[in-house]
């Protein structure tokens, strides 16, 4: 069915306005990365600065272990995404479909872990990591990131499973599927948008986290990208060009991951799956 013209115009109007608002500050970052002479600010509004140069980008790849950092970050983030999605998809399912003792308490406990200001946890966290010999390992970092991402992921998956009609599962059970088979073959495919969001969120958590990484990783070869990026920052003498160009490069994989995943967000997979 064709939409009325006014609605189409409205859609584009809203999207254009917000796209502009979203893009402008981002373009500013690009502008800093191209600006010669290490300046954060500029007195004009030009996006492509005068005498722009790609020196910062060249420097990143030739004189800084940027690729190494990127590799570390990818390793950590992908593994966290994998564990996060696995644990959240099964845990969320249990929270959505089973009535067991301690369910409510469990769900609540999960979000209480997010309530304590993270900056105050750093000191004990470091003490713990040091005692467990996990300083300078990715393992400690990954466990923590998974724990950071999980509460949201679990709740989100539970919410998604809630939107999937139980009648579908019942039908599958009648057709002879086991509970586990039903979950894998019927429920999980329908929860794909939820899985995508869970994956994206877990990835972002690990990809951009900085504070804990700074506590755990204490060798520049082990740095993840945010740490590498922050190593260009210093009180009153930050290398703005490097900082900004690294930030642009850091966001590229996120955009790519999102592009790859986004078709699952707008495909409308469940349409017509159930008639109630």
């Amino acid at each position: 069915m064709k939409e009325p013209r006014i609605i189409t115009i409205l859609r584009h109007g809203v999207l254009l306005l917000f796209a502009a608002i979203a893009v402008y500050p981002a373009l500013n970052v690009l502008s800093i990365s191209l600006r010669p002479g290490n300046r954060l600010r500029s007195t004009d509004l030009a996006i492509i600065p005068e005498n722009w140069s790609l020196d910062s980008y060249v420097h990143l790849f030739t004189e800084q272990p940027f690729l190494r950092w990127m590799g570390n970050s990818l390793l950590v983030s992908l593994l966290v995404t994998l564990t996060g999605v696995c644990l959240a998809s099964i845990g969320g399912y249990a929270f959505s479909r089973f009535k067991f003792v301690g369910r409510k308490a469990g769900m609540l406990t999960i979000i209480t872990t997010q309530m304590f200001p993270a900056t105050m946890l750093l000191l004990p966290l470091y003490v713990m990591i040091a005692r467990l010999n996990l300083v300078n390992t990715f393992l400690g970092l990954m466990v923590f990131y998974t724990a950071t991402a999980l509460p949201f992921c679990l709740w989100q998956m539970k919410g998604f499973y809630d939107t999937i009609p139980v009648s579908l599962e019942e039908a599958a059970r009648i057709d002879g599927c086991s509970r586990w088979q039903t979950f894998l073959k019927v429920t999980l495919p329908l929860a794909v948008p939820g899985l995508v969001i869970t994956a994206l969120f877990s990835f972002m958590t690990a990809w951009s986290e900085y504070l804990v990484a700074a506590q755990v990783l204490q060798e520049s070869d082990m740095f993840t990208l945010p740490l590498g990026l922050k190593s260009f920052q210093a009180t009153m003498s930050t290398q703005w060009g490097l900082y900004a160009s690294a930030a642009i490069l850091v966001s590229l994989p996120v955009v790519i991951v999102f592009m790859l995943l986004s078709r699952y967000l707008v495909s409308g997979m469940t349409l017509g799956a159930v008639k109630e």
Binding site: L87, A88, G91, R97, I110, T113, F116, L121, P124, F144
Partner: peptide
């Protein structure tokens, strides 16, 4: 009765508690 449910949530709860319990009590 609900063994499956507990097994499904256990890994997630375990990861969470492992990381948060000590720092929390410390605080």
């Amino acid at each position: 009765k609900n063994r499956l449910a507990y097994l499904l949530v256990a890994p997630a709860i375990l990861v969470l508690l492992l990381t948060i319990i000590y720092p929390f009590l410390y605080n």
